[in-house]
């Protein structure tokens, strides 16, 4: 039973993790994109649509990634090239995403989906208690872990990662050093969009293989919370996503066992937990200062 609970938690956590890790890179470059929900729902509808039309869930995944990235570039164009306010533009992107996905999705309502199958690794997946959890999962689960490791390595152990962080920390001096701030931010935004698209595809191809309007149901917002919750550290995003998953699955189990707390309070737990952890983390001023991209949300216009 423990193992299947773990797998349930992983399924709940993976889409949050994928979307959050993308947004982490975006924010590390100094851009705040509040449009995660909109990009995710676009990924969900394209992933589903392409998968059912072609019969190949992998093509669906690919399309979701591309559409997520393309959609995010709309945000990029406005905020980076036209220096519009990032908060407002991100919110508008969500609005647009929910609308457009609904229009595209009208054709797919009530259609059974195609599910991305699981991949079991022989021998390893038979380890008691954790084998199936770690080694017999859907392919996007593995990808999510690889993404975290890759982003962590990229940010802290490569020159390009250092450059990206420097753009987020101080775009003026980065520019003075000859770094192309805007180009790097475009790349980061597109990566974030691609991840959000992939996270959306996870919803419509793995989690619940079907298309329902607004099926992201606020998960994009939670992904945004996770990034700050993790104080912009990739492995902490992973921990945060699984913690969030564990709390939300845990409250369902508590109900089945018969713990009689009003379910509204149980549902509110993850949000309150996020606030508490945020406070605990931020009490350590030095730690937050080191990790917070200093230019987050600030527009950059190169002087000529």
């Amino acid at each position: 039973m423990l193992e299947s609970v773990l797998i349930t938690i992983a399924t709940a956590a993976t889409p949050l993790l994928i979307a959050a890790i993308g947004e982490l890179v975006v924010e590390r470059s100094g851009v705040l994109n509040l449009g995660v929900e909109g990009m995710m729902v676009m990924g969900a509808v394209t992933g589903f649509g392409v998968a059912v039309t072609t019969g190949s869930p992998w093509l669906g995944v690919l399309a979701a990634i591309l559409v997520g990235a393309a959609f995010s570039l709309l945000f990029g164009f406005l905020t980076l090239s036209l220096v519009t306010n990032q908060v407002a533009t991100g919110l508008a992107l969500t609005l647009l995403g929910l609308g457009v996905s609904g229009m595209i999705g009208e054709a797919f309502i009530g259609m059974p989906g195609v599910k991305l199958g699981t991949i079991s690794i022989p021998v390893l997946s038979e380890i008691p208690y954790v084998g199936r959890f770690l080694f017999a999962q859907d392919p996007l689960f593995y990808i999510s872990i690889v993404l975290v490791a890759g982003v962590s390595y990229f940010l802290f152990f490569t020159r390009a990662g250092l450059t990206l962080r420097s753009v987020g920390d101080n775009h003026d001096s980065a520019h003075a050093l000859g770094i192309r701030v805007i180009a790097i931010r475009y790349a980061a935004v597109a990566f974030g969009g691609a991840c959000a698209g992939l996270a959306g595809a996870y919803l419509s191809l793995v989690y619940t293989p079907q298309w329902i309007e607004n099926m992201t149901a606020g998960r994009g917002w939670i992904a945004l919370a996770l990034v700050v919750f993790a104080s912009w550290r990739p492995w902490r995003v992973l921990a945060g996503a699984y913690l969030f998953g564990a709390v939300s699955i845990g409250q369902l189990h508590a109900q089945v066992i018969g713990v009689s707390i009003p379910s509204q309070f149980l549902t509110a737990l993850p949000y309150l937990a996020t606030v508490v952890v945020l406070v605990l983390i931020s009490r350590n001023r030095r730690l937050t200062m080191v990790n917070t991209p200093a230019c987050l949300g600030r527009p950059f216009v190169p002087a000529r």
Binding site: A92, G97, G99
Partner: peptide, 15 residues
């Protein structure tokens, strides 16, 4: 949905 998408477009253009 079209109305919402249109609303999003309006916001984008104004911003």
């Amino acid at each position: 949905k079209a109305a919402r998408a249109f609303q999003g477009m309006l916001l984008f253009f104004v911003l």
